[in-house]
Structures are given as structure tokens and as C-alpha cells.
């Protein structure tokens, strides 16, 4: 298991940052001119290598907008995003992204879905050459033997694991997760959080996750960004210093509870008038 993960690591991770700063966002703002809406205002973020960051905030606080700008999917109004020292001006191979829905192509097998990013960027021959890597990734997420299965035969959790592999196959420097387990049931979701932690540790990944769930945000993160709405800005940063690997049992400890309360406290203040939740 670890051996294969390392092999994938070697194949995937080539561009290590010189210092351990992977992402630096400076004075980022976004205005949707049509609606006259200031979605993001003066956001400043630094993400260090191998860390997990959760972003939480009320709906409409611009957290998904922030993630899309970081992915190069929509342009910022002002400010700058540096990924490994280079400004993000559009989609890039070293950015991995994952959504609430698995967005697998139903006519493709798991393996071909995982290989899709390579096929799109470098053609079918290159994709075929990476089959071994893709199979190792499927093994990493616990789906060995499911490479020839089509999405409709997979459960929601399994489909999201395939989506994780597809995100990892190009060896991205940053993983952008947009409520990745939001559509799963509570039990599967908790399990997937433990799995995600394991995968991120094995891959030494730098991750940035948008979520609605406070316990999930705290459980996975080294730091939790709490955002406030209209205009969207980062109100507070809560550092989570719980030891790793974290277990589901930890969620019942007083330390965990205190962190959740802290996040909830700042979150409530961020909402207009407070006490809406």
C-alpha cells in the first residue's frame, strides 16, 4: 500500500516548491458587475506545503467563488494568486479540483475516468502510458478491482473516490475541494473524511476545502478560515492543533468541542444580525 503510493508520488510530484509556500493570495477581490455584487473583498491567504485548510462560511459568502478563482476557472477583479511562484491566470495542470458531485462520465470505466485529465491534455497514448499510475491510485483509495466498473455500478462514496483519483492523477500541487462529500450520507461522509485525511497524508498534499459542516472543517484541517458574507472576506482563522492522524473518536473530546464552538461563535457573528443559525 505505502509502496505503491510512493511510486505514484514519484511519478506525480516533480515540482516541489523551494520554500514551503504553495499558494499566496494577495488582496484578492471579485465583483460580479452584472449583479453589482462584491463577492470577495481583500482576501489574503497563504497555504503551506502539506497543510489542509478548510473554508467555512454562510451561503453566499463567496467561498465557492474563491475556490473557482484559485482554480483559474473565473478571473479575479483585482489582486493576485501565486501557485508555486507563478500567477494563476487560467486552468493549470498543477491544480486538482473536485466537486460535490463526482462528475464521472457514465460511459467510461473507472480507469478511463481517472485517466481523463491526461487524455484531454496529452492524448490517448499518454493516458494509456499512465494506466499503471491510475491503477495504483485506485488501490490507494481502496478501489482495487473496480477499474473496469462503470459509474452506475458504484455507490456515492465509491464514485467520489474515483473523482479523488482523477484529481490526483496529474500530480497537482494544490487540491481544491468544493464540498466534496456534501452529497453523501452522514456515515459515509465521516468515513470519507478519515479516508481523505489518509490519502492527503500519504500524498503529502496541500489541500483547500470549502464546506458547510463545522465538524468536518475542524476534523480535517490544520487551519479553518471562517468567512463572512457581503462582501465576502476571511473574518477569522482558527488553528487546529489536534494531533494526527485524527480519529472519529476525537470528535467527542472536549478539545474538539471547544474548536467547533470557536468556529461556530465567529460564524454566528459573521451573519447579518447574528443568531440566524
Amino acid at each position: 500500500m505505502t509502496e505503491s503510493a510512493e511510486a505514484v508520488d514519484r511519478a506525480g510530484h516533480e515540482s516541489r516548491p523551494v520554500n514551503d509556500e504553495v499558494v499566496r493570495i494577495t488582496d484578492l477581490s471579485k465583483t460580479f458587475h452584472k449583479r453589482g455584487l462584491k463577492a470577495l473583498d481583500d482576501v489574503n491567504v497563504t497555504l503551506r506545503h502539506g497543510t489542509f485548510t478548510s473554508v467555512i462560511g454562510p451561503s453566499g459568502c463567496g467561498k465557492s467563488t474563491l475556490l473557482k478563482i484559485m482554480a483559474g476557472l473565473i478571473p479575479a477583479t483585482s489582486g493576485e494568486i501565486l501557485l508555486n511562484g507563478k500567477p494563476v491566470t487560467g486552468p493549470r495542470q498543477d491544480i486538482g479540483i473536485m466537486f460535490q458531485q463526482p462528475t464521472l462520465l457514465p460511459w467510461r470505466t473507472s480507469l478511463d475516468n481517472v485517466l481523463l485529465p491526461i487524455e484531454i491534455r496529452s492524448g490517448s497514448a499518454a493516458a494509456k502510458a499512465h494506466s499503471e499510475d491510475a491503477l495504483k491510485l485506485l488501490e490507494l483509495v481502496g478501489l482495487s478491482g473496480f477499474d473496469q466498473v462503470r459509474p452506475y455500478e458504484l455507490s456515492g462514496g465509491m464514485a467520489q473516490r474515483v473523482a479523488i483519483c482523477r484529481m490526483l492523477v496529474t500530480g497537482p500541487a494544490i487540491l481544491l475541494l468544493d464540498e466534496p462529500f456534501g452529497a453523501l450520507d452522514e456515515l459515509t461522509r465521516e468515513y470519507m473524511n478519515v479516508e481523505l485525511q489518509r490519502i492527503c497524508r500519504e500524498r503529502d498534499a496541500t489541500s483547500f476545502m470549502v464546506t458547510h459542516a463545522i465538524p468536518e472543517a475542524v476534523f480535517l484541517a490544520d487551519q479553518v478560515f471562517v468567512m463572512s458574507a457581503r462582501p465576502g472576506r476571511i473574518a477569522t482563522v482558527v488553528d487546529v492543533d489536534l494531533p494526527r492522524p485524527r480519529t472519529l473518536d476525537m470528535m467527542t473530546t472536549p478539545e474538539f468541542g471547544a474548536l467547533v464552538r470557536r468556529v461556530r461563535g465567529t460564524l454566528d457573528m459573521g451573519i447579518d444580525g447574528g443568531g440566524l443559525v
Partner: peptide, 25 residues
């Protein structure tokens, strides 16, 4: 599907690829 379209955008898929590999199927 809008999310899948965004996924293709993130993979720097060109118009023809998106049409052939996503939209038509």
C-alpha cells in the same frame, strides 16, 4: 451538466474535445 463542464474547463479541454468527449455522448 454544469459541474462536468467546469471539470472539462479545468482540464484545459478545447471546444472540440469538450464536444466529442462530453457534450455529444
Amino acid at each position: 451538466d454544469a459541474d462536468t463542464l467546469m471539470l472539462f474547463q479545468s482540464m484545459e479541454s478545447n471546444r472540440w474535445q469538450t464536444l466529442r468527449k462530453l457534450k455529444l455522448p
